[in-house]
Simulated assay, not measured.
Amino acid sequence: MSKWWMRALDSFSEFVDHVNTSLGRESREEWNKRKLQEHYDKLQSLDYLLMSEVLSEVMDFWESGLYHDLVVTYGSRDEILSSRVFKVEELSNNELMVLAKENLLPKSVRTMALKITDVNVFKTMHAFLETIYINYHGPEMTWEDNIHIYFGGCAERLLMGLDKFDEYSRTPRPTKDFFKKLAITQITRKETNEVENNMFLLLLDIESEIFGMGFGDSYNDFSPTMSGFIQLLAGCSAAHNNREFTAPEDIIMAYKTFFKLVKTDITVYRAPQSIVESMPEFTGYLVCDKCGVSHGLGPEDSADDFEDVCDCGGLLVYKESI
């Protein structure tokens, strides 16, 4: 949605608020506060172990300013990381990516309807690892920092340890058997949906309290991506407990893990030096203007050393980043 339309919608909503207030009706802000309290009270009334602890974490997430910082960093991470992106062949060295591709279903209407842990759900994890890493490291990221995010072992620790991810003495290795269990986890039971939906709406209400009810300052895909990440963590909890149907306790464990993760300095997890050395930082790219194939240039390379015509007949154009 363009900024012009965002401003137009904000102006229209403000006009509606003014009319409603003059008629003694709820404003958007008043409605949001009421819904926030309703969702909080509903969750508080549910008799599940650790629910009160997680709700306390929710409030701390809000009041500490960490929620605000996470959303803002999430919205800017693509720009921060844009100087160097992984090529497909480089990610083929990532064992988790290979296991996910081989064992999880691709995104489809069925996986979305049943909330099955599919490849798309799996991909949400690295979006949040990038965001949390930047929050602790700062925006001056190097190519080596990108390598640490994908190959430093934090993802493996999360999948296998959940809220105990920081207690491993060495990085665990997920197995094909674990991914096969993860592939069948789904959120279809009423009581599980109740917990998941109310937690999602509570955080959405808090996001509106932080950034306002308008459209201009919101990051439209933050909440859906976080929901997918929670689904992934809940699926891992279910898989570890040999459950096909994700239970409410798995959703609660997912949030417990999430809130611990966002408060942890994950920059301490470093990729093996052999991985770092196997993927040198590119200083530029030759990109075909016809088929789009790209060739990375290392520090020792020059664009003048290569032919300017691609195998497909297109022209190879130098770009600093892709």
Rank of each mutant, 00 (worst) to 15 (best):
M1S: 13
M1Y: 10
M1L: 14
S2R: 13
K3P: 02
W4R: 15
W4C: 13
W4L: 15
W5K: 11
W5M: 14
W5A: 11
A8K: 11
A8Y: 12
L9Q: 03
D10C: 06
D10Q: 03
S11Y: 09
S11V: 13
S11G: 14
F12P: 01
F12K: 11
S13E: 12
E14F: 09
E14T: 07
E14S: 10
V16L: 10
H18I: 15
V19N: 11
V19C: 12
V19A: 11
N20W: 06
N20H: 07
T21K: 09
T21A: 12
S22P: 06
L23P: 01
G24Y: 05
S27Y: 04
S27G: 08
S27F: 00
S27L: 08
R28Q: 09
R28C: 03
R28H: 08
R28E: 02
W31A: 03
W31L: 08
W31D: 01
K33R: 09
K33E: 11
R34A: 08
R34P: 00
K35Y: 03
H39K: 04
Y40E: 07
D41T: 10
K42G: 12
L43G: 04
S45L: 08
S45V: 10
S45M: 10
L46H: 03
L46E: 06
L46S: 02
Y48K: 03
L49G: 10
L49S: 12
L50S: 05
E53T: 15
E53D: 15
L55C: 08
S56R: 14
E57K: 10
V58E: 07
M59V: 15
M59R: 14
M59T: 15
D60W: 08
D60Y: 09
S64E: 14
G65Q: 11
G65Y: 08
G65A: 14
G65E: 09
G65L: 14
L66F: 05
L66D: 00
Y67A: 01
Y67V: 07
Y67E: 01
H68F: 12
H68W: 12
L70G: 03
T73F: 01
T73G: 07
S76A: 14
S76G: 11
R77I: 04
D78N: 10
E79I: 06
I80V: 12
L81G: 00
L81Q: 03
S83Y: 06
R84L: 05
V85C: 02
K87L: 02
K87G: 00
K87C: 00
K87F: 07
K87S: 06
V88S: 04
V88H: 02
E89H: 01
